[in-house]
Design a protein around this nucleic acid. Structure first.
Length: 575
RNA sequence: UGGGGUGUCGUCAAGUGGUAAGACACGGGCCUUUGGAGCCCGCAUUCGGAGGUUCGAAUCCUCCCACCCCAGCCA
């Protein structure tokens, strides 16, 4: 087992567990579970819970179950259980043979309900949904008891049996716990245990027409599975007394529910409802759109499972509601990809460069290391010839201060190749648009080294025009312009803050020939540009499509931004 | 106005009476055939506020303030 490092601090949950272990609670065993409802796709917020539950299990030598909380057949689908299983596995976790469904316990849950009725702790209520709400009272006023609350055990037993037999219409009757209509905790005001729902369930089919509520299912399912620590999010704090009430009344094994804060990430939204709106409103292409915070979207974007796990470790676990900076997620994926991925060259916005003193019919192959981080990744041959492409941004006719890329008369290095010097430009006579650059190369600088000690400030990436391959590249940016788009207090709708430029598609990019057989999902660093991966949906051998996972840290962009913002007043530095 | 929670750097987050960890971000420097990576330095005299206890308080007490959650036959 991989016990937590005693020198590093533990989060409050791991501290509790450490204490429980010390006290030999539950005979020193730890058993957790990840309990999604199969009604949608998993997102990065779920990843936090997955890493917590599975992580704790392995760290403390325990077990973690995967359990589908499928008690509402109207919202749930088999498609979602498959995608959830796939995502959990992809994240690197294994539930082994412990795959469970709350629906597996429907028979047992029914028996529990009967037990409560027999003990006089539950009753069938004929009130309508509206009446139940009215009788519940408000936050400040106690509720009133239902006139059906005093039915005899026999009548309740018979009515509940008839509910199960399908004699009643949806909404006509419910089974309720008999607790306390005056409780300051609304969850304790005779909560509904079972409702009539004539709907087919994705697993139990038409066997049932009554379904247990979350509150009546969750704790008992935990108990049945021997879950020692039931970790859930903060909004269930008010449900804990009810959770405890059930296991206590039923006299069954009592797991401990512990609540932690859910993850919020800046520049995106996390609620299923809002993500659904993005999909349905066509603001993204689907649940796996690379801009989505879903696991499937992030996977397609090029995020690795390891980077997501590291991110989840870094953000910690606590009870205060917080908003994690997207920059931390981006740091996590850069850190991971930097170490594992090949460097290649791709020119996204090409400008033609003719090397005037390079023979027209010649091509040579230059050595290029695949990664400066890991020499073990070897090298490849890069074709060089008279006509090349470089990035349009890497040339300025009138270079600003601190710009040390190509400009008229300037010399730069082409990565792995030669020093070149800009000798001239060709522009469109009518529009004035730059068409191509004319340069000369210094044959004595092959490989990018000069033997006369001459230094050059800029190193550019490039591609040989004749040898390069055309590709489509999709550049992604934050989905929202506002750090917290969910803050709708100013009367705005979260969709008002959608970033209109969250996707930029470039169709005439040129990539080096070694990328010809790049497999879907494969990740690369496009030198000086960022990390990219082959799109797993739209890319094919005759039409390469890349997604930008994340940019590189861009110091020049920062300098340039600062220069521009300081332009209009020539502001002096404060003393 | 009921109940349950939470307030420590721009953002996360340790700290549990002995004098504010760490990470990201940010700023500066070194280095560099990626303005990448790496390395170095800086970055809370102060812990929501006010009182109090104590030799000593982010940690204990009192009062106050702010924010989040709860009135589904959703989970």
């Amino acid at each position: 087992m991989n016990a937590p490092d005693s020198t590093s601090s533990l989060d409050f949950i791991r501290s509790i567990i450490t204490e429980d272990l010390k006290a030999n609670k539950n005979h020193g065993t730890i058993h957790t579970r990840f309990p999604p409802e199969p009604n949608g796709y998993l997102h990065i917020g779920h990843a936090k819970s997955i890493c917590l539950n599975f992580g704790i299990a392995t760290e403390f030598g325990g077990l973690c179950n995967l359990r589908f909380d499928d008690t509402n057949p109207i919202k749930e689908e088999e498609e979602f259980v498959e995608s959830i299983k796939k995502d959990v596995r992809w994240l690197g976790f294994d539930w082994e043979d412990r795959l469970y469904y709350a629906s597996d316990y429907f028979d047992q849950l029914y028996k529990y309900a009967v037990q409560l009725i027999k003990n006089g702790k539950a009753y069938v209520d004929d009130l309508t949904p509206d009446e139940i709400r009215e009788y519940r009272g408000t936050l400040t006023e106690p509720g009133r008891e239902s006139p059906y609350r005093t039915r005899s055990v026999e009548e309740n037993l018979s009515l509940f049996e008839r509910m199960r037999a399908g004699e009643f219409k949806d909404g006509s009757r419910v089974l309720r716990a008999k607790i306390d209509m005056a409780s300051p905790n609304l969850n304790m005001r005779d909560p509904v245990l079972y409702r009539v729902l004539h709907a087919a369930h994705h697993r139990t089919g038409k066997k049932w027409c009554i379904y247990p509520m979350y509150d009546f299912t969750h704790g008992q399912s935990d108990s049945i599975e021997g879950i020692t620590h039931s970790l859930c999010t903060l909004e269930f704090e008010d449900h804990r007394p009810l959770y405890d009430w059930f296991v206590n009344e039923l006299k069954i094994f009592a797991p401990q529910q512990i609540e932690f804060a859910r993850l919020n990430l800046s520049y995106t939204v996390m609620s299923k409802r809002k993500l659904m709106k993005l999909v349905e409103g066509g603001h993204v292409t689907g649940w796996d759109d690379p801009r989505m915070p879903t696991i499937s979207g992030m996977r397609r974007r090029g995020y690795t499972a390891g980077s997501i796990r590291n991110f989840c470790e870094r953000i910690g676990v606590a009870k205060r509601e917080s908003m994690v900076d997207m920059a931390l997620l981006e740091y996590s994926i850069r850190e991971d990809l930097n170490k594992r991925v090949r460097r290649v060259m791709a020119v996204l916005r090409p400008i033609r460069v003719v090397i005037d003193n390079y023979p027209e019919d010649r091509a040579e192959y230059l050595d290029a290391e695949n990664s400066p981080e890991d020499p073990g990744m070897g090298s490849r041959k890069l074709p060089f010839s008279r006509v090349l492409y470089i990035e349009r941004d890497d040339f300025r006719e009138d270079p600003p201060k601190k710009f040390f890329r190509l400009a008229p008369g300037r010399e730069v290095r082409l990565k792995h190749a030669y020093y070149i010097k800009c000798k001239g430009m060709v522009k469109d006579e009518k529009t004035g648009e730059l068409i191509e650059l004319h340069c000369t190369y210094d044959p004595k600088t092959r490989g990018g080294w000069s033997d006369d000690g001459r230094k050059v400030k800029g190193t550019l990436h490039w591609v040989s025009a004749a040898h390069s391959i055309e590709a489509e590249v999709r550049l992604y940016d934050h989905l929202f312009l506002k750090p917290n788009p969910s803050d709708e207090k100013d009367g705005s709708d979260f969709k008002d803050h959608l970033n209109p430029n969250s996707l930029e598609t470039l169709t005439s990019c040129r990539v080096e020939p070694s990328l010809a057989d790049a497999a879907p999902g494969m990740g690369f660093q496009f030198l000086r540009l960022g990390y990219f991966c082959v799109d797993s949906v739209d890319s094919s051998t005759d039409r390469l499509v890349f997604n930008r996972t994340v940019t590189l840290r861009d110091t020049w962009a920062k300098i340039e931004k600062r220069q521009k913002s300081q332009m209009p007043g020539k502001r002096k530095k404060a003393a």
